[in-house]
């Protein structure tokens, strides 16, 4: 068994020929959502399944993930905290602002925040950044996975308020929540065009790739704001 750091805080574990993504467990001994824990040379890793996490899928699709050890991350659409927990592993010296709208899933997320020192839970609507602008500071990265028809607007208003100059936006676009019947390829093209031209934040698209076969009809987008 061997490990290789493929991006800051993200590791590739090679075991019997198979490769798996993993992050170093910030809270050793604790598995968050039933993922496997592996110990290699005195260090505990949590296996990261790309089928359950769009960020992991983006990593496998060779996105150049801009999250560092000391990054400040605004995470929109945190849900129960599956991916958030891995981001929290990666930014061991940074902080994650996790925004989620549903009180029911917030319940699980709070359980996660209770045991991890670097997650700030925020129960709010990502459409209205003014509702949490008094809490969230300027961040290095925004990761967004909200499955809403107006995803790009949400990204724009949040990037405008919170993202630092030359900060990165990681976006997972779900074609089916924008238009259920249209061809996903066309929806993606439209959304990327919209991101590039429609907002005054000035998104510069660095990379965009479909997240097949891990997530059907999803496009991963990485952008930088010029502001």
């Amino acid at each position: 068994m061997s490990t290789k750091e493929v991006s800051s805080g993200i590791f590739e574990i090679t075991e019997r020929g198979g490769k798996q993504l993993a992050t170093i467990n910030l809270v050793p001994g604790a598995s968050v959502y039933g993922e496997k824990l592996v110990e290699i040379e005195g260090c505990e890793y949590r296996i990261w399944n790309p089928k359950r996490s769009k960020l992991a899928a983006m990593m496998i699709k060779k996105f150049n993930i801009p999250i560092e050890r000391d990054s400040k991350v605004l995470y929109l659409g945190a849900a129960s905290g599956t991916t958030v927990s891995h981001v929290s592993d990666i930014v061991s010296e940074g902080i994650v602002y996790a925004v989620e709208f549903s009180p029911r899933t917030m319940r699980d997320l709070i359980g996660l925040c209770d045991v991890r020192p670097n997650i700030i839970p925020i129960l709010a609507d990502a459409n209205r950044p003014q509702a949490y602008a008094h809490i969230v500071e300027e961040v290095d990265v925004i990761f967004q996975d909200v499955a809403q028809p107006n995803q790009s607007e949400i990204a724009a208003v949040n990037a405008k308020q919170f993202l630092k100059k030359d900060g990165h936006l990681l976006l997972s676009i779900k074609a089916r929540s924008i238009d259920t019947v249209a061809n996903p390829k066309n929806v993606f093209k439209e959304e990327v065009k919209k991101l590039e031209h429609e907002f005054d934040v000035g998104f510069e698209i660095l990379d965009s790739r479909e997240l097949m076969p891990f997530h059907e009809d999803h496009l991963g987008v990485m952008a930088r704001v010029r502001k």
């Binding site: 902080i95 009180p103 917030m106 709070i110 925040c113 020192p117 997650i119 700030i120 839970p121």
Partner: peptide
Amino acid sequence: YNTLLRDVSIRAAKKQI
């Protein structure tokens, strides 16, 4: 700052739900 903000927001979120 981190510790205090974390405690406060966890408490607030618990209250809200």
